[in-house]
Design a protein around this nucleic acid. Structure first.
Length: 973
DNA sequence: GTGACGGTCTTTTTT
DNA sequence: AGACCGTCAC
């Protein structure tokens, strides 16, 4: 058993899992096996400390993380045991305690949850009613952040006294009063009240033997308090986290909690995981470079275990639509050129904000690429679903006036704004809830002082009838569980919902109706007595002696259970995944929602100032971390891109994080050329079967172009579109540029090579041709200017090589955005071309690595991945050289020149290749780690530090063995 | 006065 | 996709 738990763990991970310390902090950078470690620790505690699963609490931040964790633990300890763990998001665990023990702090047992829409509506109304100047949304988020600090309305009122705060204090208090009156808790209340509960009744957690927390860097103050309280009996705590991935500052996350924890528990053991098992070296390097721009950040080690791989791409495109189209074309190109080794589900588009998805969704839709959207517009937020859920919520919690107001006139039943306002006001004066007032008025038991006209009254009665019909179903359920489906079906029927949808949403009513059907399916599932029972058992907390506990019953709580689950749960996408529909879909997600996940290919579009860092963001360091998190989701290929104009057609400037000097040396300007070498490399990194040449050739057929060469790398428009965009509006009367274009004349052959040229030859050719040539002239002149300047600069500092070669191919090639290196060149590159690099132009480290390179080349048989790396290095050497000058790559123990690292450090020789290590640049292996790797592990830890450190005195060139590279190779020989 | 509807502008991130 | 505003019909 123990061996099972520890299998496949490296030394640091193993230490974290088996540590006898009570309080353990595991600092785990991206891809370092964080979840693996945490789940193994749970299994280890169960097996070796004989803890009972129901006495262990595991907290995650997202539902997705919770279900993944559960799945993994199940693998260790089996289904039965995993089920008994108290595992879930902070909010869902807090909810369990409040449901069962909430009466001890004066909560009603049937409280409902106020979602974001509810609380926003409440605050808005308070602001309006009192004619306050404060922005409602601001007030809401301020309430949230106060609650996250554990400050409730009363406490705030006691301590703050200036005018502005007074006003906010009033809002806060009224808001809380409103929630109380409606018998609702908001998200923050779940945590806040749970803290109150555990402070007053600490017996509730008397049984807790161990607490584990995922993504600890995202805890806020109240969650920290909750942690202390959960663990108060035994103080056995394991947390995993990474300060570099703290991206929830807006939700009041406190990175300081890490150090605060060390103060609170001085015996805290800290373990650093330092090896990245996810991303290629090139991606990791680039990501590291970005995160290290944050100077306040303590330097940290992070080692690649993969080969260097393909350099990430930083692509300029003219505008947001072009960016989306380019993205789609790169997806298609990569798929085709890898012989479908990459599937749609291997691609993810990660966005700073969900709203950016629109353009991309359109482009994907037009190209017929199926996709799913995670985060952003969630299933339960769709209007049609929200509407139905609001009906259920009102039936469940009649005090929920916000939900009631949203649905009272939807579908329209002539109960207008004015009527509702009058009714709400009357209810407020009477001190009753909106629902009881409306009910009384509709039933004629009470007369509204405002005149309600006949149609409005009829509508009101109809509405009340529906809600009462639902409630009747609950009462009629006698002993059995409440049939949630029946209630939902009733509502749908009474509303003639299908008809309503088809009338109201002519375009897409079918999709909407299928969403409704999906909801029905979920309700059916939730109504299944056996399933319900097991769910309830799972969420029930263990009995504590002498402590009164409200039993959760299938009868009373089926509906609230269903709704609470939905409020605290995931989107439909997750659902689909759970159902095993691992569909061939590309993923679109916000970066936030992508945390903890990984994909072979990742796109991060819209990398411009205002998007990332976001214009509203106060903390740019957090925005930088966000980019870092996004980048480190990628395993093999990473595309960053930025349009020159944003979706509002305003000028967009490249993100400051990417515009810093030195950054560009980590990126290519366009998508990679993909030949056999690259396919092999990808196959190794992803540990997949390499497609056969026949398959490759076949897949390639459907492709228009096998290079990323439609859009110029400069971010300018392709010529054909230039005519459209720049001249389209002026009625074709373009003025001829003053300068005369003379250098390279374009042959007809070249013209017809150019996409769009055939279209130009159609009717209307003459005028189009003129425009085309004018455009071409202008563009070329501009480009020649720029390139001349660049060339001048390059001449002085850059050795001749790949980049220069490309530019040397002449204006036309670069003009059309042709790739820097044709496949032919790349696959035949040899050391001869290295000779073209002027050695005196190179920094010393680079020279040495070249020497090492030659030595490797002399080895009789070269392993395929070494050959691959060699070619990579040759391709990238020119880019690497300036990098060396700008930034030293320093190791704590040993120093390694970057180029050498990129190449050699990833592929240390096997013992049988001993002749290589006779080179002066090689370092003997340490033996200690042989057991983990099956072979020697290098002594070097590569570690980039900030720029003030000067080029190192190189002691030794450390070697690094690629775990994944080897094992992948082992499989195929 | 009401209610319905269509066009325009603005969009952070999440439990 | 939602909020907001102006316009039109009853």
């Amino acid at each position: 058993m123990a061996s099972d738990i520890l299998k496949g763990l490296n030394r640091a991970q193993r230490e974290a899992v088996t540590s006898e310390a009570n309080v353990v902090q595991v600092l785990a950078p991206p891809g370092s096996g964080k979840t693996k470690t945490l789940t193994a620790r749970v299994a280890y505690l169960l097996a070796h400390r004989q803890l009972q699963p129901w006495n262990i609490i595991v907290c995650t931040f997202t539902v997705k993380a919770a279900s993944e964790m559960k799945e993994r633990i199940r693998g260790f300890v089996g289904d039965e045991c995993a089920k008994q763990l108290k595992l879930g998001t902070f909010h869902s665990i807090a909810l369990r305690y409040l449901k069962q023990y909430g009466t001890h702090i004066g909560l009603q047992k049937d409280f409902g949850l106020a979602d974001t829409a509810d609380s926003r509506a409440i605050v808005k109304r308070i602001v309006k009613q009192n004619e306050l100047s404060m922005d409602a949304n601001q007030a809401r988020s301020k309430i949230s952040s106060q609650k996250a600090k554990g400050i409730d309305a009363e406490e705030f009122a006691r301590t703050r006294k200036n005018a502005e705060q007074q006003e906010f204090s009033q809002i806060y208090q009224e808001y809380q009063a409103m929630l109380d009156a409606s018998n609702l808790l908001d998200y923050d209340d779940l945590l806040l009240r749970c803290c109150v509960l555990l402070r007053t009744k600490r017996e509730c957690v008397k049984n807790v033997q161990a607490l584990l927390i995922d993504e600890f860097q995202d805890t806020n103050t109240i969650q920290y308090d909750l942690m202390s309280l959960f663990a108060q009996e035994r103080n056995v705590i394991t947390i995993v986290g990474d300060p570099d991935q703290s991206i929830y500052g807006f939700r009041s996350a406190e990175i300081k909690n890490l150090s605060r924890m060390k103060e609170g528990w001085p015996d805290t053991l800290t373990i650093n995981l330092e090896e990245n098992y996810r991303s290629s070296g090139a991606i990791l390097h680039a990501a590291q470079h970005i995160i290290e721009q944050d100077e306040s950040r303590p330097a940290k080690k992070l080692q690649a275990t993969h080969t260097f791989g393909l350099r990430p791409i930083l692509r300029k495109l003219p505008h947001a639509q072009a960016e989306a189209e380019w993205l789609v074309s790169e997806v298609k190109r990569l798929q085709a050129l890898t012989g479908n080794m990459l599937q749609k589900s291997d691609f993810a588009v990660l966005l700073r904000s969900a709203a950016l998805s629109r353009v991309i969704e359109t482009a994907l839709g037009q190209a017929g690429v199926p996709y799913r959207m995670v985060g952003g517009a969630r299933f339960y937020d769709r209007v049609e679903i929200k509407l139905l859920l609001d009906y259920l919520r009102v039936i469940d919690t009649p005090g929920n006036s916000e939900a009631l107001e949203r649905i009272i006139n939807v579908p329209a039943r002539r109960v207008g704004e004015a009527t509702v306002k009058a009714l709400a006001e009357e209810a407020r004066i009477k001190g009753s809830t909106l629902w009881s007032h409306v009910e009384a008025v509709a039933q004629g038991r009470r007369r509204s002082r405002a005149k309600i006209n006949e149609p409005a009254m009829l509508g009101l009665r109809k509405f009340v009838g529906i809600v009462l019909g639902g409630r009747k179903k609950i009462e009629a359920a006698a002993d059995g569980p409440v049939p949630v489906v029946d209630i939902l079906t009733l509502v749908i029927k009474k509303l003639s919902f299908e008809k309503y949808l088809s009338e109201h949403y002519k375009e897409d009513h079918e999709t909407r109706w299928s969403n409704v059907e999906e909801l029905l399916a979920q309700a059916t599932e939730a109504s299944d007595p056996a399933r319900l029972q097991s769910l309830i058992e799972e969420s029930t907390l263990p009995d504590i002696d002498d402590l009164e506990q409200v039993a959760v019953s299938a009868k009373d709580d089926a509906l609230s259970f269903f709704l609470a689950n939905i409020a605290l749960t995931a989107s439909s996408a997750e659902k689909a995944e759970k159902d095993g529909e691992q569909a061939q879909q590309l993923t679109i997600s916000t970066i936030h929602a992508a945390k903890g996940l990984e994909w072979p290919v990742v796109f991060i579009p819209a990398c411009y100032d205002g998007s990332i860092p976001h214009s509203r963001a106060e903390d740019h360091d957090e925005e930088r971390r966000l980019l870092y998190v996004g980048m480190t989701r990628a395993q093999a290929v990473l595309f960053l891109s930025s349009p020159q104009r944003n979706s509002q057609r305003e000028e967009a400037v490249l993100s400051t994080f990417l515009a810093q000097s030195g950054v560009s040396s980590f990126f290519e300007e366009h998508g990679p050329s993909i030949a056999m070498t690259e396919v092999t490399g990808l196959a190794i990194t992803l540990r997949r079967e390499r497609p056969t040449p026949a398959k490759l050739a076949e897949c390639k057929k459907g492709l228009d172009t096998d290079e990323d060469n439609h859009w110029p790398v400069t971010g300018e428009l392709p010529l054909a579109e230039l005519a459209k965009w720049d001249y389209g509006n002026s009625g074709g009367q373009a003025t001829r540029p003053a300068a005369v274009f003379s250098s390279a004349s374009i042959t007809m052959q070249q013209l017809s090579d150019f996409p769009g040229a055939t279209a130009a030859a159609a009717p209307g050719f003459t005028s189009l041709k003129i425009k085309y040539e004018e455009a071409k002239e202008e563009l070329t002149l501009a480009q020649m200017d720029r390139r001349a300047q660049q060339a001048k600069m390059l001449e002085t500092e850059k050795p001749k090589g790949r980049k220069r070669q490309m530019e040397g191919q002449g204006t036309i090639a670069s003009f059309f955005g042709k790739p820097a290196l044709s496949k032919q060149t790349s696959s035949t590159t040899s050391l001869e071309s290295t000779a073209a690099v002027n050695a005196s132009d190179m920094p010393p480290g680079f020279k040495r690595s070249r020497q090492a390179l030659q030595e490797v080349d002399n080895v009789r048989t070269i392993r395929p991945e070494v050959e691959l790396e060699r070619q990579n290095l040759l391709q990238h050497k020119v880019r690497t050289a300036p990098l060396l000058r700008q930034k030293s790559v320093i190791s704590t123990e040993h120093s390694v020149p970057a180029a050498g690292y990129m190449f050699l450090s990833n592929f240390p020789p096997r013992p049988e290749d001993a002749e290589i290590s006779s080179s002066a640049t090689m370092l003997p292996f340490e033996e200690e780690d042989t057991e983990n790797y099956g072979h020697a592990r290098p002594a070097t830890t590569l570690h980039t530090t900030s720029m003030q450190r000067v080029a190192p005195q190189r002691k030794t060139l450390g070697m690094r063995r690629s775990l994944h590279g080897w094992s992948a190779r082992g499989g195929k020989g």
